[in-house]
Design a protein around this nucleic acid. Structure first.
Length: 273
DNA sequence: ATCACGACCTGGAGGC
DNA sequence: TGCCTCCAGGTCGTGA
């Protein structure tokens, strides 16, 4: 579900929780990502703290408090992080509930690919999930560094842009979309990337993110923001999930292939190998 | 050392 | 209607 634009949409709609005091903490005790259970003791230790900021790096949400600890949340494929009235019914597969007086911050995730953790902000850079992340997709991208990294790898452009250490936040939908915008074939080898193409590709990534953010993110089935609202961007995708339909640029038929086990969409005519 | 693959889960869609 | 197979926005450990 959630790539950078979706996670950023959730972040923005979570902002009304800033300033709220955490009055209770509950977790399901079920294993989430990497068979790890929510850190119950650390979550309980957040009771009494006030939420001061909600940040994001790539696909990770970081909820800061007025104490030295922050909450880390990754939505995985099907995670939802919402603000709801405390008396409303909890969704199935709810794994974390932070009471905020009359409201609750709730994390639910049917497939349990999501992640919840509490960390010391002073050691944020050392957190294993955050340590490997490259620059965030909404931050300025150093094209020279991007090109050098591409030249050093022996893989495809699709795999390269999906690597969270290259640009954090790119996922399967926007990788296809950005490569289409930059007119580059997903299977093209990173070694063959030119400076001009690297400029186009980094610009394209930023453009597809901005485009999706305007539309509130892409909802294919699960994604909703913190208020429960679905995103509109699925209606504006150029190639993703559009196999057999005409390319918006040249009207050739869009193709679907599988690269490293992931669905990949491209225009065989205007995306050069 | 790198890279592609399968595993981790549940639920929805489509075929028969 | 119901069962069966396939597929899904992510990440990580593995075996090649």
């Amino acid at each position: 579900m959630p790539e950078l634009p979706e996670v950023e949409t959730v972040r923005r709609t979570l902002l009304p929780a800033v300033g709220a005091k955490i009055t209770s903490a509950w977790d399901s005790g079920k294993c989430l990502h990497m068979m790890r259970k929510p850190p119950r003791k650390k979550l309980q230790a957040l009771v009494g703290a006030t939420i001061t900021t909600i940040r994001r790096h790539g696909k990770y949400l970081l909820v800061d408090t007025d104490r030295s600890q922050s909450l880390l949340v990754h939505l995985g494929m099907t995670g939802r992080f919402r603000i709801q009235p405390a008396q409303s019914e909890r969704a199935a597969h709810t794994h974390l509930v932070l009471g905020l007086g009359k409201r609750e911050l709730r994390f639910s995730d049917p497939r349990r690919f999501g992640q919840i953790d509490v960390f010391e902000r002073e050691q944020e850079r050392a957190h294993p999930a955050l340590a490997i992340l490259g620059p965030d997709g909404l931050d300025p991208i150093d094209v020279v560094g991007f090109l050098a990294a591409a030249k050093a790898r022996r893989t495809t452009l699709k795999a390269f842009v999906l690597d969270q250490g290259v640009i954090a936040g790119v996922g399967n939908i926007y990788a296809s979309e950005a490569l289409w915008r930059a007119k580059l074939r997903p299977t093209k080898r990173t070694k063959r990337l030119t400076k001009a193409a690297a400029v186009l590709l980094t610009e394209a990534i930023r453009e597809v993110f901005d485009h999706a953010l305007v539309n509130g993110g892409t909802t294919l089935s699960d994604f909703v923001d913190a208020d429960g609202k679905a995103g509109e961007n699925a209606d504006y995708l150029w190639v993703y999930d559009r196999a057999g339909k005409p390319c918006p640029r040249c009207s050739s038929m869009i193709k679907r292939s599988v690269l490293q086990g992931r669905a990949t969409y491209y225009c065989p005519t205007c995306q050069t190998p």
